[in-house]
Amino acid sequence: MRGAVTRLNPLVLMSFGVASLLGSFAVRDASSAVAAVLAYAVAAVVFLPSWRYPLLCLALCGVSAVLVAVSAWRLGNGDHAPVAAARILVLAWPGSVMIGFVDPSALGDHAAQRLRVPARFVASFVAVVQRMTDFSATWQQLDRTRRVRAMGPGRNPLAWVRHAGSMTFGMLASSLRGAGRMSIAMDARGFATASGRTWALPAPWTRLDSAGLVVAVALGAVPAIARLAT
């Protein structure tokens, strides 16, 4: 059960995010808020292979949830603050978790073959997303070269800011130049003249995918059902 999510169709994975986003509009009172957050938490325990990643996403979404709650409270709407926070969690958390499990190549296959998204757009999108997985390696490399060239940040917090700026600029320059070179390499492999592009792998829809879609819709419907029930 806990590995199932890694076998799901990427479109189904994305449907969890879409369903939770639509469902979040129905989070209007304490009962729907509690029911929705609990439902997603239970689903995470039952279906996800590890705890660490969803918790990290929860923490990040939690920052925005707390900010929304604080501003609701500051605006004199203190009673509503916890519900507003829960709505942000329901809106953002499931999608942010599921996107991490999407394989860019599989998403491309399904977008192109099932949703008929234009092939050139899909192929370049996949290549760019793939490149993002290189970011951590490039960041590491930039950090090492700066450290060994006496350009590391040291203890001073101001230097940390400068260092982050220099690294970000380095990443930007490296990405822009990498993008140029990658586009040359892609064009030089028939991409420039590609028409009638085919796909090396099929985009199958399995029973597991249907089941996943049902779960996604059911979870998205939890807040609405909770409101009707109370």
């Binding site: 190549s105 996949v126 793939q130 290189d134 070179r181 990658m182 040359i184 492999r189 028939g190």
Partner: peptide, 14 residues
């Protein structure tokens, strides 16, 4: 078809 000088540049998939 071109094989570029910096080999990582040609990578488009995982």
């Amino acid at each position: 078809g071109l094989v570029p000088q910096q080999p990582g540049d040609a990578v488009v998939a995982e």
